[in-house]
Design a protein around this nucleic acid. Structure first.
Length: 460
RNA sequence: UCCCCGGUAGCUCAGUCGGUAGAGCGGGUGACUGUUAAUCACUAGGUCGGCAGUUCGAGCCUGUCCCGGGGAGCCA
């Protein structure tokens, strides 16, 4: 007999004479005459109720089953006479596959997120974490669907890089050098003896690589892991996270802002339509306002606000800020929150930032003071997307590289894209985990990735 | 990295004036013929985060380190 998953069983149209299901015991209620087993197999949030009668030959074993045990059940699917569920399975056989001793760490009660983080290998067996990781999987596919439907090509940019993309964050070294005996020359580490013959790092962004493919395949995107070795201890940062970076050829900042809005709205609508059961759990137990937040995002155009006007709004507001609001200074968390949560009460795209607070590759505007950069800010999370139209003019780009004191030679291949058939192009980066926080209401980024990597934390 | 808060039973927490420790849940045993985080009875669980100090005496006071949370910086 073929195994059927709980998800299919629960959506069954009619009773079934014989089914086989396998999964893990969530809870067990028993008495002398029969037992109720709540069985979950991860296929969906809901459990299926299994009734085991005491005349079953191994009933003594069934009564000693515990939360967490793995079992196989054969029986028939019938309409449940009890309240609370449509279907239940009357067992004709229960096979014990894997026991769970009484020190099983997950109890049938609510645990704190902090505790569950210490058992990250077991937490997906809880309702909340099962739900977020099912949603993580579904949204990963939705991201590819969004781009593939629009004829964007997925580019696998490298994880190990030799380029120093200045300003994008601190990097992890990749090396095979003997750390007890590092070869040196003139007091510096001699990377010539290292695996690649030069200094190597884990990628902090696939952008520069994907830009090169943008000038051949047109519209492209990356979706993969990214690494930053910054000593950030916040609920919004990790050392390893997943990033989506589209890049469009023959596109300007307006196109970029539109793509960012379309992308977020597509994913929010997808979640509401395709993950409704799991989403309901978050709306009920994690964030009571989740559904209205998502409705608001899905159904309204994002506010588009030039940086200069954002500064004016902040300066005119009666709000007291800890950090000074001044043209030329970057917006702080408190400023972003004021704009999205209090002033506009919806996502805001701030664009045309002062050039001195933004990266070297962003396109200089005609005012020569600002660059064609944009950040999409959402309530509670803050910056979810950072993007720009790229500087496609060779002379402007080399001038900027020189101004910042970077070594032009390191960017020879990047500059080639401006030398040969350069085109206006634009793109952005979106942190996948921040998106998951947005659609689930989960407030700590460590709880939307299977095994979080943060400073001083590398368990599992 | 900085500021603030916390660490007591497996989990969530209480612990008065400094006098050697409590509850709920969970676990175990038993009862119970339709339960929904079942209910009822009984029962076993403790290096009070580590180290040092003050004191006749420290879960409680002091110092320090470790870990967790919230906020900030940096960013996605």
């Amino acid at each position: 007999m073929q195994r059927i998953k709980v998800k299919s069983l629960l959506s069954s149209e009619s009773a079934q004479e014989e089914v086989l299901l396998k999964g893990w015991v969530r809870t067990l209620r028993d008495n002398k005459a029969f037992s109720f087993i709540e069985l979950n197999d991860g296929s969906c949030l809901a459990n299926i109720q299994v009734i085991v009668d005491s005349n079953l030959e191994n009933y003594a074993d069934v009564m000693h089953l515990s939360t967490g045990a793995a079992i196989a059940v054969t029986g028939k699917l019938v309409e449940s006479p009890g309240k609370g569920q449509k279907w239940e399975v009357q067992a004709s056989g229960v096979e014990l596959i894997g026991t769970a001793p009484d020190d099983y760490p997950l109890q049938k009660k609510r645990h704190t997120d902090e505790y569950l983080r210490t058992i990250a290998h077991l937490r997906p067996r809880s309702n909340k974490y099962g739900a977020i990781f099912r949603m993580r999987s579904a949204l990963s596919k939705a991201i590819h669907d969004f781009f593939q439907e629009r004829d964007f090509k997925w580019i696998h940019t490298p994880i190990i890089t030799g380029s120093d993309c200045e300003g994008a964050g601190e990097m992890f070294h990749v090396t095979t050098l003997d750390l007890m005996n590092v070869p040196k020359q003139n007091g510096e580490v001699n990377f010539v003896e290292d695996f690649f013959g030069k200094e190597a790092n884990l990628t902090v962004s696939g952008q520069l690589s994907v830009e090169t493919f943008c000038t051949s395949l047109g519209d492209v995107y990356t979706f993969g892991p990214t690494f930053r070795s910054e000593n950030s201890n916040t609920s919004r940062h990790m050392a390893e996270f997943w990033m989506i970076e589209p890049e469009m050829a023959f596109a300007n900042l307006q196109d970029d802002m539109q793509l960012g809005q379309d992308f977020i709205q597509y994913l929010v609508r997808f979640t509401m339509e395709q993950c409704s059961d799991d989403l309901e759990l978050f709306a009920k137990f994690v964030d009571k306002e989740l559904m209205s937040t998502l409705d608001n995002i899905a159904n309204n155009d994002f506010v588009r606000l030039p940086y200069t006007e954002a500064i004016e709004i902040l300066q005119k507001s009666s709000q007291q800020f800890e950090y000074e609001v001044k043209w030329g200074k970057d917006l702080q968390s408190e400023h972003e929150r004021f704009l999205t949560e209090q002033h506009f009460k919806q996502p805001v795209i701030v664009y045309d930032y002062p050039k001195d607070i933004k990266a070297f590759y962003m396109r200089l505007n005609d005012d020569e003071k600002t660059v064609a950069a944009m950040d999409i800010l959402v309530p509670a999370i803050g910056e979810i997307i950072g993007g720009s139209q790229r500087e496609e003019r060779y002379n402007f780009l080399t001038k900027r590289i020189k101004e910042l004191g970077f070594d032009e030679a390191n960017y020879w291949w990047y500059l080639d894209t401006r030398k040969y058939g350069t085109v206006p192009h634009a793109g952005f980066g979106l942190g996948f985990e921040r998106l998951l926080m947005l659609v689930s209401g989960i407030s700590n980024i460590r709880d939307v990735i299977p095994f979080p990597r943060t400073p001083k934390n590398l368990e599992f």
